[in-house]
Design a protein around this nucleic acid. Structure first.
Lengths: 249, 249
DNA sequence: AAGGCATTTTCCACATGACGGAAAAAGGAG
DNA sequence: CTCCTTTTTCCGTCATGTGGAAAATGCCTT
């Protein structure tokens, strides 16, 4: 029913990704539990096709071929998200976005604009730092605390508005709050007068993306946040279920 | 030496990507020449792991799992490029960039800044439309003309400066010129006073990325373009050879 | 330099697991 | 409802992947 060697090749690629995109044969073996010979053979195959690369010190790394596939897949994800984003627009009356964490940046992958006259401008493709956006906080909160700190230290937390959180301590408290209540807010932290509410998209066990609605501060502040968040949570959950492997909780 | 089923699984993924990320079983069969039963079995495996998704009309599409791998791989590519970009800085004295086409946008993946006092500001992670940049023109020129036109029509060609090319006809002529001479220029088309020269990075048969140097108009205009382009071409070629599968011309 | 250790790469006999043709099932069109 | 196309399942065969163990490689220590 399922092809063993393909499954194992995927195990190898995932092990590499979890290792930061680069690992020695023995490290892959430790992670996957597969015998050395087998891993080596699989790596040779992936190597020949450009999906894995071998560095001069004989370590292996994810290769450029994956960039292409990932790019195409990202477009697909945006397409599938649109119906769910449309539901969020219906629910909130505001523009809805899908964003993922790519490297150190938040990337907006898809958007469905609000029907209102005053609304957010299209920002699909835009990259911003995570600390000043609701989607960014959701995605950071979905990672291990240590990982989030590393990222924040690497990028810094530049002040975008007077409301931007610029202290690591304050951000960690904020992330804990986000984890706790299940949604994140951005109250003019990226742009004054623009407020957002974001919820996580889980694909089974991981936070793979975030969905948000954003609009003028007065309108966003007028709604019951917990109620809106609850509605969005359901939509995001349905989307996550569709995204992830089938038949998983 | 190489694992057949893994190779075939990759064939299937590539066939899907070339079909725009979505295809029916029979279309994959037509492209790969593999028997139906085999393809179906491979797809089931990829499906179970979230690397492929099945739509309601039973067509198959690239899945969200690839987005993650692609993102990690993109970071790796940036790392590998740095030594080559450094050579370009040495050659030109100006800031060097690596960019790829992701969806409709150019993404700057890596940068090595010029040692000069007046230099380009870091823009790793930035996304811009292709029509107003040298790297964008190189990447568009590396695609089929029809594909480039489709993209340009989808995004439009917004005027960024008085020098921006905003007519499709003029852009097609420009792309033909780029293909012909092997490099592209941006003479203040994205930002006034900033000029760039970009060359393609081939990984064997495809243009996978572009490398550029950019700086103040006066400095860039002072050098012999053909000579600089020739030097950059060599560096980009070496990088492309390292990126692609080994032992390919 | 030389030796020793850790890791990677190659090899090979075995039998498991993938193969693919063909039949069955599921959708769609008329 | 029937026919036709496309997808999915099935199963006997043997090519292909498997993994332990030996050989080779590279690195670090002495």
């Amino acid at each position: 029913m399922s092809v063993q060697s393909v499954e194992r090749a995927l195990d190898v690629l995932e092990a590499l990704a979890e290792h930061g995109g680069e690992a020695a044969l023995s490290e892959i073996a430790a992670r996957t539990g597969l015998p050395y010979g087998t891993i080596h053979r699989l790596l040779q195959t992936l190597l020949a096709r450009g999906y894995v690369r071998q560095e001069s010190d004989r370590r292996y790394a994810l290769g450029a071929g994956l960039v292409r596939l990932g790019g195409v897949a990202e477009g697909m994800v945006g397409t599938w998200a649109r119906p769910y984003l449309a539901k969020m627009v219906e629910l909130s009356g505001e523009t809805a976005n899908l964003a993922v964490l790519e490297g150190d940046f938040i990337v907006y992958v898809a958007q469905v604009p609000s029907p209102r006259r005053l609304r957010m401008f299209a920002e699909v493709g835009r990259r911003v730092l995570p600390h000043s956006t609701a989607v960014g906080k959701v995605l950071l909160a979905g990672r291990a605390a240590g990982e989030a700190v590393t990222l924040l230290e690497r990028t810094g937390m530049p002040r975008r508005t007077p409301n931007t959180i610029t202290e690591t301590r304050a951000m960690l408290a904020e992330l804990a709050l986000v984890r706790d209540r299940g949604y994140a807010l951005d109250l003019g932290e990226e742009e004054l007068g623009v407020h957002c509410l974001a919820v996580p998209v889980h694909d089974g066990d991981r936070v793979v993306a975030a969905m948000s609605v954003s609009g003028p501060a007065e309108r966003i502040d007028a709604v019951d946040r917990d109620e809106l968040a609850e509605g969005m949570r359901k939509i995001a959950h349905a989307f996550g279920t569709e995204l992830g492997p089938p038949g998983r909780r």
